[in-house]
Computed example of a mutant assay.
Amino acid sequence: MNQWYPSVIHDYSYELNKDFQFAAAHYVPHESAGVCQRVHGHTYYVNVTVAGDDLDHAGFLIDFKQLKNWVHDRFDHQLLNEDPLFNNEDSNRFPTTEVMARTIWEIIETNLQKLDHQPTCVQVIVRETPTSYVIYRPKKEVNK
C-alpha cells in the first residue's frame, strides 16, 4: 500500500499512522450526484494519524489493531447507507468521501478520549479511487 500522504503539523511528541483498506458499497441520495445515486462499490484506502505526548501502560500511543477494529471491522463489506452513522435525509450525513473521513475521525476520537493518556486523532485521509481522496483535519479549539 506504499502511500505517502500530506502531513499535519502538530506539537505532540508522538505521531502514529495506520493505513488500512476495506471494501464497501454506497450511494449518494441526491439528484446532483449523477450516477453516484446508484449503488456502487469502492475499495477504500484509509490513513489515520493519531498523536499524543504520553504512552499507555503497554508503551503504545494506540494499538494499531484497535484502530482497525474501530473502522475496518465496522465498514468492511457493508452498504454504508445502512450504517446508523449515515443518513439519507441530511446531506451532512450522506456517505460521501468527505463525510466518511469526518465520521471515521468521530469514531476514532470518541474512543481515544476514553483513554487515560488522551491521544488525539489529528487527521483522517480516505481514498475512494486511485485519483481521488479527502483529508479531514478537525479545527483546533481556540480559547476565547
Rank of each mutant, 00 (worst) to 15 (best):
F60C: 10
V99D: 01
T129Y: 04
F94H: 12
D63F: 10
T120Y: 01
V134Y: 00
D90Q: 15
F64I: 10
E31W: 13
V99L: 13
I62A: 01
W4A: 10
Q78V: 12
D76N: 15
D19T: 01
E89Y: 15
T43E: 01
L67W: 00
S32R: 12
E31G: 05
H26A: 03
T103W: 01
D83G: 12
A33D: 13
L67S: 02
S7W: 07
N88T: 15
S91G: 03
V134Q: 07
K140Q: 14
V142W: 08
D53H: 08
E128M: 11
F64W: 12
D53C: 02
E128A: 09
K68C: 07
I107P: 01
D53K: 04
P119L: 01
L85F: 15
C121R: 00
L67F: 06
R74F: 04
M1Q: 08
T129W: 00
R74Y: 06
H30G: 06
P138D: 14
C36D: 13
T49Q: 06
H30D: 14
I107M: 00
P29G: 12
G41R: 08
P6V: 04
L55R: 06
F20R: 06
T131D: 12
H42A: 08
Y133F: 09
E98V: 09
Q37Y: 06
Q37H: 09
Q37V: 15
H40C: 11
L115E: 03
S32F: 13
V99A: 07
K144Q: 15
S13N: 07
Q21N: 05
D53F: 05
P130Q: 08
Y27K: 10
E82M: 14
Y27D: 09
P95F: 15
Y44T: 09
N88D: 15
A51H: 02
I108T: 02
K139Q: 11
K18I: 10
P119W: 00
V50L: 04
E141I: 12
I135P: 00
H117D: 05
F22N: 07
V8T: 08
P84C: 13
Q123M: 09
T120C: 05
H30V: 13
T120M: 03
N81E: 09
E141Y: 06
D76R: 10
N143L: 13
Y12G: 02
H26F: 07
A58S: 05
A33G: 08
D54F: 07
P84K: 15
N87D: 15
D116A: 14
D73G: 03
A101M: 07
A51C: 12
D83V: 15
P84E: 14
F20Q: 10
W70Q: 09
T49G: 03
A58L: 11
V126I: 09
L112S: 02
A101V: 12
I108Y: 00
D11G: 05
K114Y: 02
E106M: 08
D73C: 08
N88L: 12
H42T: 11
A25R: 00
K18C: 06
S91L: 11
H42I: 11
A24H: 04
Q66F: 09
G59F: 04
M100K: 03
V142E: 11
K114M: 00
H117T: 13
A101F: 00
F94L: 14
T110N: 01
P119D: 02
I107Y: 02
Q123R: 15
I9R: 09
T43M: 03
R127T: 02
E109N: 09
A101H: 05
L55I: 02
